[in-house]
Amino acid sequence: MKKQITPREYSEQGGIRCPTICIRSGKPNAAAVGFFSSILRETLNGQAAILPVGDDIRHWHASPHAAVGFIEHAATLDGATLDNRRNLTMPGVSATVGEQIEALRRVAGDAAVALIRHEPDPMIHRIVSGWAQGFDTSRAR
């Protein structure tokens, strides 16, 4: 069994907390977070996507390109400016699923949005509705 580390140990080791990376490459998977990417990725490729939560779910996102920038930024920071708190929360964009769908509509039209199948999954809803919707990222900036 892998040992759980405490927040203090994590901070002492240094680390970055990234938003959900969206749109991730690959195929849809069973991860609770996967639909944030699939409702955009699959529909932009003319394929159906399953949406297991309501349009009002808000989440915190960043692009894969931004994630690479986060790692570069963290790697080049002067450690002395971080004191003993080396853990950084990186910036992202907070948006609802409905806002994601409207952005999809603006870019790809109603035909792409029609490929989203609403199939409520109470377990996934319970998981993602409890996640943070945004963070203070001023230390990372």
Rank of each mutant, 00 (worst) to 15 (best):
A67N: 08
I21S: 04
I39N: 04
S37M: 06
G26H: 05
P19Y: 11
T43N: 05
P28I: 03
H125L: 14
M1F: 13
L40W: 09
A66T: 06
P122Y: 11
P120C: 07
R105E: 03
H125Q: 13
S25H: 11
H73Y: 13
A112F: 03
P120Y: 06
E72V: 14
I5R: 14
D110Y: 00
L40N: 02
S25W: 11
L51Y: 03
G14D: 12
C22Y: 14
A108L: 08
D110N: 07
A95K: 09
A80E: 12
A108S: 13
D83R: 11
G26T: 05
C22D: 12
P120R: 11
K2S: 15
S25V: 10
L88R: 01
V128T: 05
S38Q: 11
I21C: 07
V33H: 12
P7V: 10
H65Y: 13
E99C: 00
H118M: 07
R58K: 03
A66C: 06
F135G: 10
D78H: 01
R86V: 07
A111G: 00
Q4H: 15
R85K: 14
E102S: 08
I71L: 07
H61S: 07
H73P: 11
A62W: 09
T89Q: 05
G14P: 09
I101P: 01
I39G: 07
R141K: 13
A74R: 06
